[in-house]
């Protein structure tokens, strides 16, 4: 059964080193990974395993020490500042553990900001922003500031924001890390639903085992290397049972 996949992200021999107190720390040690268009992929590993570093490399938020990242077959290292900004604006949507909403802006303003950067007119941006906030279940709270929203609601705003310019890739770094069990589950389900509905590729760095259930593939990272890649079908783990009853 020869299935050919279209790859949206490819990394080749990625190495990232940090210098800390005179010591060289290798956070990523030769990671080569192909990510298919439209898949929901989770990068799993304990903290310090290098998954956030990989997230930063794939998202163009940091430069690798060596190795290449291709987004849609374009080598990120070849992009100038304008093109990189364009890529971050249109092609990639980011979701963070700490939500990273702009604190002084309302939910709607946060969601429309990337659209304003993309040159979309204010009216269109507001209309689309409201629609996106409705999609994530916050239609009633568009004019609330982040401080007036719960963690789960803030993360929903961040998800709506990440979808603002119809990106091809959503990068989520520990999206459930600051949320309780139930809210985390809701966020995961929301991401999965949006992945199914819009066909967007979701790449999530996490150590939340709840993610396995919805992922098409799971990449296990250990000490900056890929330990193994498993398809969901291969994982013999019932996450729902493992967590037990909810309160």
């Amino acid at each position: 059964m020869a299935v050919t996949y279209e790859y949206i992200v490819r990394t080749k021999d990625l190495i990232k080193e940090y210098t800390m107190g005179g010591q060289v720390l290798r956070a990523l040690d030769g990671v080569s990974l192909d990510i298919r268009r439209g898949e929901y992929i989770s990068i799993m590993g304990p903290s310090g395993s290098g998954k956030s570093t990989l997230f930063n490399m794939v998202g163009g938020l940091d430069k690798p020490t060596s190795g290449t990242v291709f987004i849609d077959e374009v080598d990120m290292a070849q992009l100038d500042a304008f093109e990189l900004a364009w890529l971050r604006c249109r092609k990639i949507g980011y979701i963070f553990q700490t939500f990273n909403l702009i604190p002084v802006m309302t939910a709607l303003e946060n969601v429309t900001l990337p659209m304003i950067f993309a040159g979309i007119s204010t009216d269109d941006a507001i209309e689309k922003g409201i629609k996106l906030l409705q999609t994530v279940g916050l239609g009633e709270r568009v004019h609330h500031k982040p401080t007036e929203l719960s963690g789960g609601q803030q993360q929903r705003v961040a998800i709506a924001r990440s979808f603002a310019n119809d990106p091809a890739i959503i990068l989520a770094d520990e999206p459930t890390g600051n949320l309780d069990l139930r809210t985390g589950k809701e966020i995961i389900e929301l991401l999965r639903r949006m992945n199914k509905e819009s066909g967007v590729t979701i790449i999530s760095a996490t150590h939340d085992l709840k993610m396995i259930d919805v992922s098409d593939r799971v990449v296990w990272i250990r000490d900056g290397k890929i330990d193994k890649i498993s398809a969901r079908a291969d994982i013999d783990l019932n996450v729902g049972q493992m967590e037990g009853e909810q309160h």
């Binding site: 374009v74 890529l87 604006c89 091809a168």
Partner: peptide
């Protein structure tokens, strides 16, 4: 979804000054 993908990478649009002023004022 391939049709939705833009061909290549285009340049970022410059934000108009009025928007920058508005952002600064709001801030």
């Amino acid at each position: 979804m391939a049709s939705k993908q833009e061909a290549g990478i285009r340049r970022q649009i410059e934000l108009p000054l009025s928007q920058a002023v508005k952002m600064a004022r709001d801030s």
